[in-house]
Design a protein around this nucleic acid. Structure first.
Length: 471
RNA sequence: GCCCCCAUCGUCUAGUGGCCUAGGACACCACCCUUUCAAGGUGGCGGCACGGGUUCGAAUCCCGUUGGGGGUGCCA
């Protein structure tokens, strides 16, 4: 038998943002498609056409592109929107009635619950199974769940057995005639020749129902794989309301796509060896669905940031500067655009590169160079000028700065000389100077930016700080 | 209620019966380096949920308990 091209479908719902959990599932599907020369099929899942906001679908495509899933690649197909197949969904339902797998029922939700309660059952009792009702207003179409058991062969979990009598005759068509998601999903998968369904574990309880539908529709069920969900610190499934889940947001804050991808891939799976920071090529080479974990993983932003810091430090200086551009040029930046100086930034870049975990931290390390006045941290200022040596030493530093050579090295030498005279270590002595120049008590090494700032402006800031301290 | 899944340091994981007095990473702590802060280096803290089996031998296999999570819609 000739083996067909494997087709992996990725089916996010159009919620207006792209979930990090979805990103990981997408990555799994994508890697599998690459490994097996298969196709990654993107189908946005919603049977309600009114929710097909093109910009949402585009947002998903963009987010996928950001993590390296390129819609122009030959392994990529789509995007499709589910409701485009609505007619086929209904046709499939009708076929199921003909073949005896479906039947109509006129009970309302309340009536179903009432009967279940009276009989001590869990769900629908099959009341209309043999009543031979015709389609009509108020009639839903239900699936006739057969006797026996359904075994879902799951690549990550092994065989999962469900006793069919614990599965009620579920609804296929609503009383208004519209297909439910479960049916639409299966019909689409069959129509698109999907061979592998790799999705989050929360869908596992639906798998037996879907598998029964595949069979009833005369198709061979796909290979199933239910991967563990991502959870928050409370061990609850990540949700938009409680947790930071939108990949767009991480992107905006300056998480590098490679770091995001690498981190995501260490959740529920691990590359060989003692290092977790590995190149994409190694991930593609080594990843195996079979070795994906069974238990939920906590999405740890701290660790993501640590990975990102690693990736930032792995970059060449030019790459780092290039990566900073979106942040540096964004409107969020505290300095006026016309004061920004690319050559100054370039000179600072090496000092900045080892000091940030995410790119959004970059502006705070260089902003004082591009602003007319540094933003003074009052608490830090008060503390730095609290020492009795603070003002006199800074006055001396200013005096020396007026005539010394204007290079970082000689600036440092001058400050050290003042320190020797007053018996204050450089580490402490630079405190008031740093506040005067940068407005903060921490930051990059000091003398390089002072050199960059120039003699006049540096002296002006020192004197301004001295005046402030005298108030 | 019913069904399903899960269980190794705080977190993410390695581990598929002897290589495990359980390895790595993040976080945390200490020290070194140092111009503050980082980065880097060195070291430290810290775990097989519990109880029964099976076996010469169990983190690894089986059963149970407990604990977590998910599903159970005429939502997707």
């Amino acid at each position: 038998m000739a083996s067909a091209t494997p087709r992996y479908r990725f089916a996010p719902s159009p919620t207006g943002f792209f979930h990090v959990g979805g990103a990981r599932t997408a990555l799994y599907n994508w890697i599998l498609a690459l490994q097996n020369d298969g196709v990654f099929v993107l189908r946005v899942e919603d049977t309600d056409e009114s929710r097909n906001h093109p910009q949402w679908t585009q947002g998903i495509v963009d987010a996928l592109a950001w993590i390296g899933i390129d819609s122009s690649d030959r392994h990529f197909e789509g995007p499709y929107f589910q409701s485009a197949y609505a007619a086929e969904h209904v046709a499939a339902a009708e076929a199921l009635v003909k073949s005896g797998h479906g039947y109509y029922c006129d009970l309302t939700t309340e009536q179903v619950q009432q009967r279940a309660k009276e009989k001590g059952l869990n769900g629908y009792d099959g009341y209309s199974r043999d009543r031979g009702l015709a389609p009509g207003p108020g009639h839903v179409l239900r699936f006739r769940v057969p006797e026996g058991q359904t075994v879902v062969r799951d690549v990550v979990r092994g065989d999962v057995e469900f006793a069919n009598d614990t599965i009620e005759d579920f609804v296929l068509l609503r009383s208004n005639g519209s297909p439910v998601f479960l049916l639409a999903n299966v019909v689409d998968d069959i129509a698109m020749n999907i061979t592998h369904v790799v999705r989050a574990e929360e869908h596992l309880p639906n798998a037996p129902k879907q598998q029964m539908l595949w069979n009833a529709l005369g198709a061979t069920p796909p290979v199933w794989a239910h991967v563990p969900v991502l959870v928050n610190e409370q061990r609850k499934k990540l949700s938009k309301r409680r947790d930071k889940v939108a990949v767009e947001q991480y992107r905006q804050e300056g998480i590098l796509p490679a770091a995001m991808v690498n981190y995501l891939m260490t959740l529920g799976w691990a590359p060989h060896g003692d290092t977790e920071i590995v190149p994409w090529s190694q991930i593609v080479e080594e990843f195996k669905l079979e070795s994906v974990n069974h238990s939920p993983a906590f999405f740890d932003i701290k660790k993501l940031n640590a990975f990102n810091g690693e990736y930032i430090r792995l970059m060449s200086l030019d790459e780092f500067i290039a990566a900073c551009q979106p942040i540096i040029n964004s409107e969020q930046v505290p300095w006026p655009a016309n004061r920004f100086d690319a050559s100054v930034f370039k000179a600072m870049a090496p000092l900045v590169q080892t000091r940030v975990a995410v790119l959004s931290e970059v502006p705070a390390l260089v902003d004082f160079l591009f602003m007319a006045e540094p933003m003074i941290d009052e608490a830090a200022f008060a503390k730095a000028f609290g020492a009795e040596w603070a003002r006199p030493t800074l006055v001396e530093i200013a005096t020396r700065f007026e005539k010394c050579a204007w290079t970082a090295d000689s600036l440092k030498t001058e400050v050290e000389a003042v320190g020797t005279q007053h018996d204050v270590k450089l580490g402490k002595l630079q405190g008031p100077l740093r506040i005067a120049i940068t407005g903060r008590s921490i930051g990059t090494p000091l003398f390089e930016p002072i050199e960059l700032l120039g003699r006049d402006e540096s002296l002006r800031r020192i004197n301004s700080a001295l005046q402030r301290a005298n108030r």
